[in-house]
C-alpha cells in the first residue's frame, strides 16, 4: 500500500507540565507547499514545532501526527528526523566539541545514506546560502552570531534534504540580506525536492520572499483562522487583535485551572 504524501496533524493536544498549550491542531502540509503559522506570543507556535519533533518536556494528550503515513508520535526524535522531518530551531543550540560534518555524517550513516558526499554538499550549500566556509570547521553553532546560526539551520536543512521542514522563527535575528538568502533557499527546496514547509513567524516580511500557500493564525493553542497569502497582509495592516477579535481573551480553560495571565506561554521557550 502506498501512503498519500502528506504531513498530517489531526486534533493535536499537548501540555508542558500542567499547562495545556495545544488545544487541538488540525493541519495538512503536502509536498511543495508552504504553510505559515502566525500568532501572538504564547499562542503555542513554538510548542507545536517542539511537539512535532518530540522534544522532551511535552506530553501529547490527544491527536495524531503522520508523515507520509508514518506515525511520528511513536518515534524518538532522531527517528522522526530519519523519517523526513526537519526542525530549524528558533534558538539553535551550541554543541561544543562536535563538528557540523561529523554530526551530519552520523545522521547519514544512521539513515543508511552514503556519507561520502557530505563535505562537498556542505561547501556547495554554504556558498549558496552565504554561510562563510570558515564556519564549517567550527563546532556546531559555537561562537556564531544569531544570524549565522539561522543560516546554519538552513544549510543543514539543504544538506539533509528532508521531506518536511518546520522552521521556527527562522527569520528572527536575521538581517535583510540573510533573510532573503534563507527564504530563497527554502523556496527553491520546495520546487527542487518538493519540500513541504511549515514556517512559524511573527512577521510577514519573511513571507514576501517565501510565498505561503496557506496562512494560519494560531491563538490559544488552536488555529483560529486560515486563509491565503492575503491573510498575512491583513495581519500586517490590522495586527492580531483585528483578526482575532475577542479570541485574544483568555479562554475558559485557563479560568478553570486557575492559571496565571498567560497560561499558554511556552514554559520551555
Amino acid at each position: 500500500m502506498t501512503s498519500e504524501r502528506v504531513l498530517c496533524i489531526e486534533g493535536l493536544c499537548a501540555k508542558a507540565g500542567d499547562a495545556h498549550i495545544l488545544g487541538g491542531i488540525d493541519l495538512e502540509v503536502r509536498p511543495g507547499e508552504v504553510h505559515a503559522i502566525m500568532g501572538p506570543n504564547g499562542s503555542g507556535k513554538s510548542t507545536l514545532s517542539h511537539v512535532l519533533m518530540g522534544r522532551p518536556g511535552y506530553e501529547v494528550t490527544a491527536g495524531s501526527v503522520t508523515l507520509d503515513g508514518t506515525d511520528l508520535l511513536e518515534l524518538a526524535p532522531w527517528e522522526r528526523a530519519q523519517a523526513g522531518l526537519f526542525l530549524a530551531l528558533q534558538h539553535p543550540t551550541e554543541v561544543p566539541g562536535v563538528s557540523l560534518e561529523s554530526m551530519l555524517v552520523e545522521a547519514a550513516v544512521a539513515g543508511g545514506r552514503d556519507p561520502d558526499g557530505i563535505r562537498a554538499a556542505l561547501v556547495v550549500e554554504a556558498e549558496r546560502i552565504g554561510f562563510d566556509e570558515k564556519f564549517l570547521g567550527r563546532p556546531v553553532n559555537v561562537d556564531l552570531s544569531g544570524g549565522e546560526k539561522k543560516r546554519n539551520e538552513a544549510l543543514q536543512m539543504s544538506v539533509i534534504r528532508p521531506r518536511y521542514a518546520v522552521l521556527d522563527e527562522i527569520d528572527s535575528g536575521l538581517d535583510v540580506d540573510a533573510l532573503a538568502a534563507v527564504a530563497r533557499r527554502v523556496q527553491d527546496a520546495t520546487d527542487e525536492t518538493g519540500l513541504g514547509v511549515l514556517v512559524i513567524t511573527h512577521f510577514s516580511r519573511l513571507l514576501e520572499v517565501l510565498e505561503p500557500d496557506r496562512v494560519h493564525v494560531l491563538s490559544h493553542g488552536r488555529i483560529h483562522t486560515s486563509g491565503g497569502p492575503e491573510l498575512a497582509e491583513e495581519l500586517e495592516a490590522d495586527g492580531y487583535t483585528g483578526i482575532l477579535g475577542e479570541a485574544v481573551d483568555a479562554p475558559e480553560v485557563a479560568v478553570e485551572l486557575g492559571l496565571g495571565p498567560d497560561p499558554f506561554a511556552d514554559p520551555l521557550a
Binding site: 522534544r55 526524535p77 532522531w78 543550540t93 554543541v95 554530526m103 551530519l104 552520523e106 545522521a107 544512521a110
Partner: peptide, 10 residues
C-alpha cells in the same frame, strides 16, 4: 536533542 533532531541516534 539538537543532534537527535538532525537524525543522529541517541
Amino acid at each position: 536533542f539538537y543532534l537527535e533532531s538532525r537524525g543522529v541516534p541517541t
